[in-house]
């Protein structure tokens, strides 16, 4: 008879349960109607089963998003866990869709599910990738835009994990400022 060791069948639990959402820009429907929950997972193996099964961001149509959020937090500014928060935002140029987008997004997911930010990981609410004709965006959302120490630490580590050069700056913006902006740019509360 064959012996199966626990290591061969036990899944590796994650610290958090995560929900992956998909947003499709159908202009005949409302914003919330266009936002769909794909699946939830709480083990490393279930994460990969999902990730290996879905399209990479670079294959999505313009106007689509993926959002990965902790279970119980909706991927919108209005959620109680997000409304005082903000995001580390990375804006990609058009060439980066082929070179960097999928790699950066996977790295972002691995940072989240692996709790890469140590004690500051509790500040993290989720991450979003927006696929847009003018340039794609990836952001990590955190829960409190006043929490400078955690935010800066998360930003520095995130930049390191993405392999960004020291010269490449990324900015952190509050959702309040993003939602009430009049022009096309939002001021950065922090930069790393």
């Amino acid at each position: 008879s064959e012996t199966v060791t626990p290591a061969q069948y036990l899944k590796h639990p994650l610290q958090n349960r995560w929900a992956l959402w998909y947003f499709k820009n159908d202009k005949t429907k409302g914003w919330t109607e266009n936002l769909r929950l794909i699946a939830k997972f709480d083990t490393v193996e279930d994460f990969w089963a999902l990730y290996n099964h879905i399209q990479q961001p670079s294959k999505l149509l313009f106007g689509c998003d993926y959002c990965l959020f902790k279970d119980g937090i909706k991927p919108m500014w209005e959620d109680d866990k997000n409304k005082k928060g903000g995001r580390w935002l990375m804006t990609l140029n058009k060439q980066q869709r082929h070179n960097d987008l999928d790699r950066y997004w996977l790295e972002t997911l691995l940072c989240l599910i692996g709790e890469a930010f140590d004690e500051h990981s509790d500040e993290v609410c989720g991450a979003v990738v927006n696929v847009r004709p003018k340039g794609d965006k990836i952001a990590i959302w955190t829960g409190n835009c006043q929490n400078r120490e955690a935010i800066v630490s998360i930003g520095q580590l995130y930049k390191e994990r993405l392999g960004l050069s020291l010269k490449a700056l990324i900015g952190y913006q509050s959702h309040d400022d993003t939602s009430s902006k009049s022009g096309s740019t939002t001021k950065n509360l922090f930069s790393v």
């Binding site: 061969q8 590796h12 639990p13 994650l14 610290q15 490393v44 193996e45 990969w48 290996n52 790295e107 691995l110 599910i113 692996g114 709790e115 890469a116 140590d118 004690e119 990981s121 994990r161």
Partner: peptide, 18 residues
Amino acid sequence: GTRIIYDRKFLMECRHSP
């Protein structure tokens, strides 16, 4: 309590494990 942390290398190794 303790936090369950996985580094990049470990997570990537799990990608194609049965």
